[in-house]
Nucleic acid binder design. Sequence first.
DNA 1: CTGAAAGCGCTAACAG
DNA 2: CTGTTAGCGCTTTCAG
Lengths: 340, 340
Amino acid sequence: MSTLHDVAKRAGVSPMTVSRVVNGSDAVSPKLRARVERALTETGYMPNKLARSLRARRTDTIALLLPDMTNPFFTTLAHGVETAAREAGLTMILANSDEREDEELRLAQLLLERQVDGILVVPAGTGAATIRLCRENDVPFVAVDRRPEGVEADVVRTDSEAGARLLGQLVVGLGHRNTAVLAGPATVPTAADRVAGFRRAIVDEAGLPEPLVLYGAFTIDSGREMAMRALELAPRPTAVFAANNFIAIGTLHALDELGVRVPEDVAVVGFDDLPEAMVTFPFLTVVAQPAFELGRESVALLLHRLANPDGPAREVVLPTRLVIRRSSGSPIDVAALPAD
Amino acid sequence: MSTLHDVAKRAGVSPMTVSRVVNGSDAVSPKLRARVERALTETGYMPNKLARSLRARRTDTIALLLPDMTNPFFTTLAHGVETAAREAGLTMILANSDEREDEELRLAQLLLERQVDGILVVPAGTGAATIRLCRENDVPFVAVDRRPEGVEADVVRTDSEAGARLLGQLVVGLGHRNTAVLAGPATVPTAADRVAGFRRAIVDEAGLPEPLVLYGAFTIDSGREMAMRALELAPRPTAVFAANNFIAIGTLHALDELGVRVPEDVAVVGFDDLPEAMVTFPFLTVVAQPAFELGRESVALLLHRLANPDGPAREVVLPTRLVIRRSSGSPIDVAALPAD
DNA sequence: CTGAAAGCGCTAACAG
DNA sequence: CTGTTAGCGCTTTCAG
């Protein structure tokens, strides 16, 4: 591995001149430039970004802290981040908190030690501790997809409340009375928003009975388990709202095991789409979030913050999209329902 | 952001003593240690990994260079890498070559400039250029999932040839005569292996007619397009082998559009599973690769190489698993086929 | 236009 | 046990 000094020696110039050539400064005479360029290729010189970053106090690196890197929603989001980052000349480091707040904090610490220029986080909980850490170290922070609680911070997200309300209205329109929400962790504000939005359509707007609300994790197993429990209760819900894509998949597994048909016996609606591509036979009715755009937009917000350290916190809310497929079924036969 | 010097000044000791405390050296008197520790927490000191790495000539970072970070097979693999890396105290940087060799090389360059300790690559082509670059810069390289061509290098992969042969034998056993392979890029050695394995079972072992082989990309669109073409040809294949999961999905889309039923009209078998979790209704017959374990194992190989720079190249081949689901169908009715 | 000096934050190597 | 010296590879600053 050759250094600037090696190249300089070979070209018979000072390291500074080599540095200028490498960085495209025009204050170098053509003659020396040619000599240096030859030496550069002869030695196969490769700059050491570590040294450069140490000096420049900038690494051109941003971190994306995800709760679950196997969830296609988040990998699509990551793809959006990576694309936008690369366009801006930044490298992305990806880290996986596994939906655990303590792990998220530990990872954030690690990333700060690596002197990343900024951090994008999909908070595993309220995000408060992670935000505080970034603040203390003066590193820009953007919350992605999930609204942090009680702290002012840059946020890029979709309107979970409005999206869930759409699904609630759909369910109401189809004639359902007994509904269930299989929610995420109660500690994640976004999970609460989804419950609230659904409840608003069902109870506040339609005057129907309170939906059954079960809290769990954003995982397939938890979705399966919650669905099992929900279907045993009386009155048995005829419509189930799964608060994210993995919970929806788990729900479908559970219903399959129980021999409950979708949508004939139970209607299912979900939040977060699977990439269209991956849905071999389009099936699940969902409110889809623009995952890739969420990623792009968060990089934009971070760049804005880097250029503008002291501006006010901004919140970007991207629209959701209701995608009606088969799982929500047709209007149910009210006459066939047991009387209240 | 406080430095070792700041802490040292505050504690009234030399920076070196602070360094010793931070790094857990026991050669510090209890009295000084206490003073330093207090100063450490008071200042909220956070080590600068950049400076440490520059000095130590080691970044404790490895890179994973993927051809498609939206493919669940690769994200599962990445999850395996991340898990193993973290266990070994390493951070993983993820980069996305988009199945382009030039992009892969450009990214590898960038990663080397960042002084990563090692690189794991799922080569977009033969991998030759990338391997050469790493060699020149003396950075350990492990090829993952795809065998590089013509170069000796550490490899972790599954036996594509054997897996494809299994699928070929299955297809033969079901009574098919006219088969098609929707392969990946002809430049990727692994794609060629899959064609070879399938062909071996069909032609060499069963003496059936040559399968129709179409080359394309490992994408849903390409799979769809190849399937469209294959189904128009005469004799129309009754069994189709999709050489990766995205090609398989594209194939299913195409058949759906054409009104061709699976498996009644055409049997479909694939390579690379979707994570079990994501297959809402298990359907596709595949040879599944152990994606997570491929990731784990490649980190193991890289660690071995780091500890052992001059050992011979090693190749780890993990077994595939035949998963028979509905898409392959039952034995076909030979009498119903047109005569040869 | 070119180069010498200094230092980013940290630690290996040595001296006391 | 503690501190000093030197330097990782690069670039900012200033002098020639």
